[in-house]
Design a binder for these strands. Structure first.
Length: 349
DNA sequence: ATGCATGAGAA
DNA sequence: TCTCATGCATA
């Protein structure tokens, strides 16, 4: 990849920018996918029960993944790593409190059958068949067992609260987080849910950020310096996703004012610095990341194509079949659904 | 830049 | 249990 480390101490002053929280809007997104009709194919061992979607999924999978390419490597299932690193993410020195939550409302929309991107596949690994309704052995052999250690890491979340926005939509959430406040910020009436704006802002943001010589990680950390109520730091991942518009619409809308505030403050600070020529001079357990091999991934995608929201039983069956932990499969589906909901050029474009 | 994961809150 | 926002770990 590339290393971009232009760490530079940046001191920002708290800026008091009036937070304006954006309401959400329904993100209209259209996700369409094509389900090909393809009956045929069977010869299951468990025949009898199966049938249903999963089976078809496999058939589809076989067809779907016509000629694709795949990666040559086949990593083991999971690997853990333990290391001690004093991650000081952003936990600020004292405060233990700052966990507001971001909650953005969400509008829900109609989903469509999913849509997934072409993946890699090569040899047609025909899946077997599962019995949908019944859960074999009660629990798929793998089951969630103990995914071993999940170290609860400090939860720090930044918060973004939104309030109203009357719409037929449903949710609105705030997180109580003890501190009695419910930020009653100015009822926001704010921003434009205009995807156009977001897109151009994200682009400008990235460019100005680079101009400042700041990395995505720097931005995330610096956010904590802007003492915007309810806003802590964010990770490099999130900044990156913001810039590449790979966040949900609501999330983009919520983050925009915050990043905008940071940008202005950062540029202001730099101007100031430029002005005066004299200054400066210049442990823990790590979470493990399961790696799902290409063949398994192809199967999952095939199932997802026909049934984005499998029941617990089906998930268990799939997990057993692919020899993955049930929880891994469940999470995979969740993430897949989230992906399909992301912005980028999904619908409005 | 992304894959897999966690957790809070809403169903 | 799912959705959503987010993050760690990793390619």
């Amino acid at each position: 990849m590339m290393s971009m480390n232009s760490k530079q101490p940046f001191s920002m002053h708290p800026i008091l920018h009036e937070p304006k929280y954006t309401p959400l809007h329904s993100s209209s997104e259209a996700i369409r996918r094509a389900c090909l009709p393809t009956p045929s194919l069977q010869g299951n061992i468990f025949a009898g029960f199966d049938e249903t979607l999963l089976q078809r999924a496999e058939a589809l999978a076989a067809v779907d993944i016509v000629a694709q390419k795949s990666h040559p490597f086949k990593p083991d299932a999971t690997y853990h790593t333990m290391t001690t690193m004093t991650s000081m993410t952003c936990t600020p020195t004292s405060s233990s409190a700052h966990l507001h939550h971001p909650s953005v409302l969400s509008s829900h929309h109609h989903h469509h059958p999913a849509h997934h991107q072409p993946s890699q596949g090569l040899e047609g690994d025909l899946l077997d068949h599962l019995t949908p309704g019944i859960s074999l052995g009660g629990m798929a052999g793998s089951d969630v067992c103990s995914s071993a250690s999940h170290t609860a890491h400090a939860a720090h979340m930044s918060a973004i609260n939104h309030m109203q926005h009357h719409h037929h939509s449903q949710s609105m959430n705030m997180h109580p987080h003890g501190l009695g406040s419910h930020s009653s910020l100015g009822t926001g009436l704010d921003s434009e849910p205009d995807p156009r704006e977001l897109e151009s802002f994200a682009e400008r943001f990235k460019q100005r950020r680079i101009k400042l010589g700041v990395t995505q990680a720097d931005v995330g950390a610096a956010l904590a310096n802007l003492k915007i109520p309810g806003v802590g730091c964010l990770s490099q991942s999130t900044i990156c996703r913001f810039e590449s518009l790979t966040l949900s619409h609501n999330n983009m809308v919520a983050l925009k004012p915050i990043l905008e505030a940071w940008l202005e403050e950062a540029e202001r600070a730099q101007r100031e610095k430029m002005a005066k020529p004299e200054i400066f001079n210049g442990g823990d357990k790590k979470r493990k990341r399961t790696s799902i091999a290409a063949p398994e991934k192809r199967s999952l995608e095939a199932y997802f194509a026909v049934q984005p929201r499998p029941s617990s039983e089906k998930i268990a069956a799939i997990a057993e079949k692919l020899d993955l932990k049930k929880n891994v499969v469940r999470v995979w589906f969740c993430n897949q659904r989230q992906k399909q909901k992301r912005m980028k050029f999904s619908a409005t474009h």
